[in-house]
Amino acid sequence: MDELRRFRQALVAWAAGGAGAGAAAAAARELAGGVRTVVLVEGSSDQVALETLATRRGRDLGAEGVAVVPLGGAMNIGRFLDVCGPPGLGLPLAGLCDIGEERHFRRHLQRVGLGSGLTHTGPETLGFQVCVADLEDELIRALGAERVRQVIDTQGETRPFLTFQGQPAQRERPVEHQLRRFMGTHSGRKALYARALVARLDLDHVPRPLERLLTYVS
């Protein structure tokens, strides 16, 4: 597990470029032998959600050699495909993105030689699943607004959420929209609720992108 963590760190440093990129590339290449698949996700909340779901399914992705790597933003997908895809390590890849970033992912997948003439569903055939509209939206729809509010209550955040609902920009919006926006209003809150919401999911009604991604890396 420690080697997988070191691999992720080396991959991030390599993708970032700069003075330490050469050493990071060498470290990533050395550690890549223990990696079966790299899963590229937009942020840490996506990583938390996938790993939490895997645990609920009785799986340990790290022990399976599946490295879930947050990109630090969807715009970084090109750099990560360059270092761990065909131009770099040539490792098997999968991923998760929001629907608004699907075209960007598709363009870079084609650029590095992973498919050609891809349609909007093309990334899914390559293991890159698309959330509509994002992971939080998928989880809220799977659980329903009332159960999500119960999770907020167990986190001790009912009062902050009610205050958020009372803001002029939020008062007339559907509660599902309010819940989704609330989760992005504080650093670390998306990851907190990714774990908490996945923990409450009915395993027979897991959001399609998460279910398909976990199946793809089986």
Rank of each mutant, 00 (worst) to 15 (best):
A16Q: 13
C84D: 05
S45E: 15
A94Y: 04
D60K: 06
V38Y: 05
P70G: 08
G22A: 15
A26L: 14
G88L: 04
G18D: 08
A49S: 08
L50S: 07
G72Q: 12
P92A: 05
V83D: 03
S45T: 14
V48H: 09
L71K: 04
A16H: 11
G43I: 10
P86L: 07
P92L: 10
A28R: 04
G85D: 02
L50K: 11
G85V: 02
R79N: 12
F7W: 03
P87H: 01
A10S: 13
R6T: 06
L50A: 13
A63K: 15
Q47Y: 00
A25N: 00
L93P: 11
G72I: 07
A94N: 06
L40R: 04
A28C: 09
G62E: 05
E3Y: 11
L53A: 11
A74H: 10
Q47F: 00
P86E: 09
G33A: 00
G43R: 11
A15P: 05
G73Y: 07
V66G: 12
V48E: 15
C84P: 04
R29Q: 14
A16L: 12
S45N: 12
S44V: 15
A67F: 02
A32C: 10
T37V: 15
A67N: 13
P87W: 00
A28L: 11
A24F: 06
A74C: 12
L89V: 07
G33L: 08
P92T: 04
L81I: 02
G34H: 04
G22K: 14
A94R: 09
Q9R: 10
G62C: 09
P87N: 05
G90R: 00
L91V: 03
T52S: 14
L81D: 01
R56M: 14
R29I: 04
R36V: 02
E64H: 03
G73K: 10
G72W: 13
G17Q: 02
V41D: 01
L89R: 01
V66R: 09
A23V: 06
V66Q: 10
A23D: 06
L40T: 08
E42I: 12
S44D: 14
I77H: 04
V41F: 02
L93T: 09
V12F: 13
A25L: 04
L89D: 03
A28K: 05
F7H: 05
R5T: 13
G73A: 09
L91F: 04
A15L: 03
A15F: 00
G20P: 03
P87R: 02
L4R: 13
L50E: 09
I77E: 00
Q47K: 14
A13S: 15
A16R: 15
A25T: 01
R57F: 10
V12I: 15
R56F: 06
G17H: 01
R79Q: 12
P92W: 11
R56Y: 09
V35L: 07
G58V: 13
Q47E: 15
V35K: 03
L31F: 12
A74R: 13
R79F: 08
T37E: 12
E3S: 12
A15M: 09
G88S: 09
R36F: 03
V35R: 07
M75H: 12
E51P: 08
T55Q: 08
E30N: 11
A13Q: 12
A54Q: 12
E30F: 09
D82T: 10
S44I: 01
A63T: 07
L61N: 08
G20D: 14
V35E: 02
G17T: 02
I77N: 02
A19T: 15
L91I: 00
